[in-house]
Design a protein around this nucleic acid. Structure first.
Lengths: 340, 340
DNA sequence: CTGAAAGCGCTTACAG
DNA sequence: CTGAAAGCGCTTACAG
């Protein structure tokens, strides 16, 4: 067990004060007009003895931890994992470390996690909030913590956020189906009133109405077992035989949906057109490949962390709310080309 | 900005000493023989004023952060994400918080991350180490930090670890192919000498030799672009037309492999048998479903954190190295039933 | 140019 | 039964 060396040890060894060392470590040697000779000497000592200042003590003293709390819905989702990856990279470049966790869209768990981050004194938050966390988010903001909402937001709260243009992306995807010979287009979504899901539905509905097509929406319970979802969708498609295209609001709904379609023996894309929201590597792997709405992850991530950093760098009174809406990419593959 | 209340504020308000409050908070009221009346009064005050002790100050004082550093290869992989989930749960129950990060199997990144965790004073480590990190792991152990290696280990280091019985699992899977009418069985693996990959190869080789079959191994560079992998495997299968079954050492190799097989027009399972190591939801989604070796994630996770907790709870001199080897599950699906 | 001292918010051995 | 005091390892206003 190697005893870690502290600033006091250096002070004793070099026979100078802790203040001087602290200034040198923090690059304030010039500002404090410390002689070059002393500066060099201290730096060399530090280097030779492998001194690392204690973060803990620094944080206690400065009130800053240089830690950002990142709360996503599910860190194992490709989308969120990539987000975390990109956010982390930029955070590091700015001297911040990221702590991440998954809310699983569970309000209780989220509350606990927020408390946990608070306890750990994170300097700022990037959060994909479950529905109904308005109060907690508001109180975070009220405490003076910089907060950036991500992927979804609360219309009733004045907070910064970075989201995808879900409405437009969804509208475009739905329109594409309508313009490619599909005439009974169903929208399969989650039973959730989160903003991003609502926007996707509205986009779909608008496209249907514009093309004089029927609006057919089927809702699957959130957190459903995939097998249950397959069953529900088989039932749905059996009861709605006229449906000739299905647009899924999430990628995992599409997984279950494709299974259901296969069970019923419909052929993609001819018997049934398919689009999924939120691209996934498997869509390119499956046969036929599946058309999808892709989220520009690195841009979403970059915007989120940059907004947070700008809040972090400003005193409370200068912080302005920033709202960023990023457009999606539409990737056309084989699941939407109907042979006429 | 709400000013947080400190133990000193309570002491002043209640006109008692900080020590007394500290003892009460830490459940040592009885032990320190503090009157029930005072205890109640303090607890009530804390409750009413929402006091939370500063973790930072506690850590600085005790030298413990109650944080476990979890370093996995890639947190977005289903396997590692699930691991993290289970580990976190048990850690929480024991008062520990988890910080996780991904090594991406990159030695330089791993070195940085270890340094980061050290800087943040984590109390213990669970690590899936990239190849060649022996020195860093050893120095962690030498410093007196509890360390549990996971998923793979270093034969030359005396450290605790929890791993899958890769050899046996791989042997069984290979044997299954050999016993189900496949006669030219190729093993597709990564160009990596990590222990788990090595064990999988040895298990395969043993089964082949026992059945008098040819050992055919193809290595794909680690971190290869999937499209590149597909090309390599198409080339490999073209040059090895006799191959009638392929056993993939990881699930993502199987993704590329199936694409290659499809491109060549072979039919699974009749023209080509398939097994993948490390189960994936997609294997059950694909048609035909794909036989796989599944890792019992919750058991692996449970063992890892339990071993770490037992180290954490013991003084340095009482810590014994613990080595745990967990058996795999073999899931037979449709990709391995050859019609004769 | 450099240092002594107070303070961040806890814990804990010691004293009574 | 309870408190005064030192200490964890830093930072920073103040003094000279």
């Amino acid at each position: 067990m190697i005893k870690k060396i502290s600033i006091g040890d250096i002070a004793a060894a070099l026979n100078i004060s802790k203040s001087t060392i602290s200034f040198i470590i923090n690059g304030k040697a010039k500002e404090k007009r410390i002689s070059l000779a002393l500066t060099e000497k201290v730096l060399q000592y530090i280097d030779e003895n492998g001194y690392k200042p204690s973060r803990l003590a620094q944080s206690l003293s400065t009130g800053k931890t240089m830690i950002i709390g990142l709360m996503v819905e599910k860190i194992s989702d490709y989308f969120f994992a990539q987000m975390a990856y990109h956010i982390e990279e930029i955070a590091y470049q700015n001297g911040y470390k990221i702590f991440y966790c998954s809310t699983d869209n569970d309000p209780d768990k989220t509350r606990e996690l927020i408390q946990l981050f608070r306890d750990r004194n994170v300097d700022g938050y990037i959060i994909t909030p479950p529905a109904g966390m308005e109060k907690e988010i508001q109180s975070l903001i009220d405490e003076g913590s910089p907060v950036v909402l991500f992927d979804r937001y609360y219309p009733d709260i004045e907070s910064s956020y970075v989201i995808l243009d879900n409405f437009k992306a969804s509208y475009n995807a739905s329109k594409y189906l309508a313009e490619h010979a599909y005439v009974h287009i169903a929208f399969i979504t989650l039973d959730s009133n989160q903003s991003q899901m609502e926007d996707r539905k509205q986009g779909y509905a608008k496209a249907m109405i514009e093309h004089g097509l029927e609006v057919i929406v089927e809702k699957v319970p959130y957190g459903n077992d995939p097998d249950q979802t397959v069953k529900q969708l088989v039932r749905f498609l059996r009861q709605n035989k006229r449906v000739d295209a299905v647009y899924f609001a999430t990628n995992y709904l599409a997984f279950s949906g494709v299974k259901a379609i296969n069970q019923l023996g419909y052929k993609i894309p001819d018997g049934m057109g398919i689009i999924a929201f939120d691209d996934h590597q498997v869509f390119d792997f499956y046969e036929p490949t599946i058309t999808a709405v892709a989220q520009p992850i690195s841009e979403l991530a970059g915007q989120s962390i940059r907004v947070l950093l700008s809040l972090l760098n400003k005193p409370l009174e200068e912080r302005a709310v920033q709202k960023v809406i990023v457009p999606a990419h539409f990737i056309i593959r084989d699941s939407t080309t109907r042979l006429l």
